[in-house]
């Protein structure tokens, strides 16, 4: 039986990992690699690594790291892939099939596209034809708008004027293999997932939905699965809670969700 996945999300900004709140406030966590090593040693199910940089300068702001300066996203991916023995999805700055090839050939198992997929939907099909649907994860950032939800682009800054469930169904039709669904409202709040959002998108699609945004307690994960997600993801909790993988897995198992047991 297929297990539900528990997925850490690492956010890279200007060369350093950050913690995010409301998609607008970013607090520096630090080195782009050491978290990857720890997660790989824990045998986590999968890793999502998303570059949210807006500028072109990637700087670790120190010269005493063992890995030297990693000055581009591909330098960072090279270093990540050398210490990441778990499935890796890479996101950020991918706007063409050539970009997809670049990241996949350097160690990403899957890539995720967000604003570029919305603005150039044929990118989804072109990527799926080249790398298979399973390698194309469409990210959707959603926020409450009136009584429903809206899709937001450009890291939450631009309202797209579309419903996330409709867009997810369209992305599936175009060839997406998975949907990575983030709630902008819940980002960094610790209030738990937006379950209504997850349910709407999961019901609109037959591909796996990865839920993200709002986890503050390990017990939040099972709620996301019950709402219809195939995998539950979180970012901040992995930085600030002890034994985030094994305790997260324990909470899921206690709630009756099938997962691979974690390793401490």
């Amino acid at each position: 039986m297929l297990k539900n996945r528990l997925i850490p999300v690492l956010l890279l900004k200007d060369g350093l990992l950050v913690r995010s709140e409301g998609f607008s406030y970013h607090q520096i966590i630090g080195d782009p690699l050491h978290e990857v090593r720890r997660l790989s040693e824990w045998n986590v199910d999968e890793l999502l690594y998303i570059d949210i940089s807006r500028g072109d300068v990637y700087d670790q702001r120190r010269d005493d790291t063992l890995h030297g300066t990693l000055a581009t996203p591909l330098d960072i991916l090279d270093a990540v892939s050398r210490c990441c023995f778990m499935p890796l999805t890479w996101g950020g700055r991918i706007v063409s099939v050539a970009d997809m090839r670049r990241f996949i050939s350097r160690g990403a198992d899957k890539i995720t596209i967000n604003s570029a997929a919305f603005r150039t939907p044929e990118l989804i099909g072109q990527g799926a034809a080249m790398f298979g649907s399973q390698a194309i994860v469409v990210s959707i950032d959603a926020k409450r708008v009136g009584n429903g939800y809206g899709v937001f682009l450009d890291g939450g800054r631009t309202e797209a004027g579309a419903d996330p469930a409709d867009w997810a169904a369209e992305a599936e039709r175009l060839g997406a293999g998975e949907i990575f669904l983030q709630s902008i409202d819940r980002d960094g709040t610790g209030e738990g997932y937006d379950l209504d959002l997850i349910a709407r998108v999961a019901q609109a699609t037959s591909i796996p939905v990865i839920a993200c945004g709002g986890v503050g307690d390990f017990s939040d994960y099972a709620e996301g699965i019950r709402a219809g997600a195939s995998a539950v993801a979180a970012a901040n909790i992995w930085h600030f809670k002890e034994l985030a993988d094994s305790l997260g897995k324990k909470a899921l198992l206690r709630a009756g969700v099938a997962v691979r047991p974690g390793r401490t």
């Binding site: 039986m1 297929l2 297990k3 539900n4 996945r5 199910d45 999968e46 649907s133 399973q134 293999g177 998975e178 037959s206 591909i207 796996p208 195939s230 995998a231 691979r260």
Partner: peptide
């Protein structure tokens, strides 16, 4: 049960 079959089995 969804396709793609993604994850640990």
């Amino acid at each position: 049960l969804r396709v793609p079959h993604v994850g640990w089995n």
